[in-house]
Computed example of a mutant assay.
Amino acid sequence: MSTATEHLYIVKDERILGGEPIIKGTRTPVRAVVELWRMGVAAEEITNHLPHLTQAQVFDALSYYSDHQAEINYYIERNRIPEELIDARVREK
């Protein structure tokens, strides 16, 4: 069951990504938007990378991040691929 947050487009659903904050109506985690933004993609251009999202959803995800940085940073770190695995994949090619 989906749990609303104080942000219009952000919900948590234990059945989707274990309750990680996601964009309502999608399986896209807030961290996906934040990671693009932190890589230097302008907020207005994130929908070019995630075309199923609206500008309002993107800005609400960034607003949620502003209010819950520790939580989203935790999910980003938890889902990070270790450097040694990335290096191993590159060497295999």
Rank of each mutant, 00 (worst) to 15 (best):
Y9F: 14
A42K: 13
V33E: 01
E6K: 07
G40R: 02
G40D: 01
E45W: 13
G40V: 03
I16L: 09
L50N: 09
W37V: 00
S63F: 14
E44R: 08
L17W: 15
A4Q: 11
A61G: 09
A88F: 05
A70L: 07
A42L: 09
V41C: 02
S63E: 15
E77H: 15
R27K: 12
Y75I: 04
E20K: 00
D60K: 08
R80F: 12
L53M: 08
V90Y: 15
A61H: 14
D67R: 10
V90W: 13
T26E: 01
E45S: 09
P51H: 05
I16R: 07
N48C: 07
S2K: 13
L17A: 04
H7G: 04
S2M: 10
I22A: 01
S63L: 10
E44M: 05
I46Y: 00
P29W: 03
Y65P: 12
P21K: 02
M39E: 09
Q57P: 05
A43D: 06
V58W: 09
A70I: 10
P82G: 04
D13I: 05
Q69D: 12
R38L: 07
H52Q: 10
Q57K: 11
L62Y: 15
L36M: 07
V11H: 02
G18D: 13
L53S: 09
N48A: 05
V58A: 06
R89A: 11
S63T: 14
V58I: 13
A61C: 12
T5G: 00
N48L: 07
L62G: 04
V33M: 03
Y65K: 10
R38T: 01
